[in-house]
Nucleic acid binder design. Structure first.
Ligand SMILES: [Mn+2]
Ligand SMILES: [Mn+2]
Ligand SMILES: [Zn+2]
Ligand SMILES: [Zn+2]
Lengths: 156, 156
DNA sequence: TTACTAATGAAAATGATTTTCATTTTCTCT
DNA sequence: AGAGAAAATGAAAATCATTTTCATTAGTAA
């Protein structure tokens, strides 16, 4: 939605990469148009209709690049694939996840953010010292069944 | 270490399974002898010296079984493999993880447990309602580089 | 012991991600 | 605008963890 943000991100990427290419632009665009967490395959499928020339390999490489530059958040789902979401500014900034162990769906939430931030900060400080561990990121996630899978599980 | 616990667990498993087999017994034993989080392959390698007859497939099936019965905790590591740890009683009961994104090492921690439990409980209640999501488990994890990988990363 | 099947193991299949390498594209410098 | 260097790409093959298939083995109740 916020097209301004997409421009900011694109500028930021251009500045940290030696060449800005069409695949990168297209993939960024797809990520910017959704709030969902997409898998490489899902992005590739979306791409394919308009840009059949772009390969799945490039999708993987680009997502990895975006992730390395901190523009994209990568979530390793227990369903065996990684999913990617553009980091957005402002309100949606800090959030965590509900992950469906059956279909891999990821739901964002940001309830109790202040409280959580306080606890995480404190914990992070203590742990990095105690274990001489360089903490780069943290996840809080609730695993279970989404509404759809909950129903489908009952039947079988 | 606490051999008593292993017996309790074995009894609990026997009661919920139609047959108790040698592979299951051996795998449980390996899990009970360590505090680490082991991958299927690591368990298989350990097994191989004394029981070359047991196959990797059975290791996977057994771990999945133990996990389904709640005896083993399964952690999906961003390094692409799952790791398994026997749930222990008492002190180690409730804990979370530091995960190395380079080598997959998992470190347990249980600092600020009370505080965390309070926050998680509250969050769980609110989220399961709001999203009609059946919450089965939660993870709090810090991702980064363990001491060893931290050093090895500097060199290269 | 026997008979019934759950459980197993070997091999093949799957599926996500990575690697390889020849070709294309971007971008800087005329 | 055009040329050249090197980064980026894409197709195909390789990896690698996990799952499936199916013929054989081994717990267990009678
Ligand atoms: Mn998210
Ligand atoms: Mn643990
Ligand atoms: Zn689901
Ligand atoms: Zn490490």
């Amino acid at each position: 939605m916020p097209q301004r943000h997409q421009h900011q991100v694109r500028r930021r990427l251009r500045d940290n990469v030696s060449r800005w290419t069409q695949p990168r632009d297209v993939i960024l665009d797809i990520l910017a148009r959704t709030k969902k967490h997409l898998s490489a395959k899902e992005i590739y499928d979306t791409l394919y209709s308009t840009h059949p020339g772009i390969g799945l390999t490039t999708v993987y490489r680009t997502l990895e690049l975006f992730h390395r530059l901190g523009v994209v958040q990568k979530v390793t789902s227990p369903d065996g694939q990684s999913r990617y979401q553009l980091r957005s500014e402002g309100s949606q900034e800090h959030h965590h996840h509900l992950i469906c162990i059956r279909c891999g769906k990821i739901i964002d939430y940001q309830d109790f953010a202040e409280e959580e931030l306080k606890l995480v900060g404190k914990t992070e400080q203590v742990l990095s010292q105690k274990h001489n561990f360089l903490i780069l990121d943290h996840n809080i996630e609730f695993l279970g069944l989404c509404e759809k899978c909950r129903k489908e599980t009952q039947k079988s």
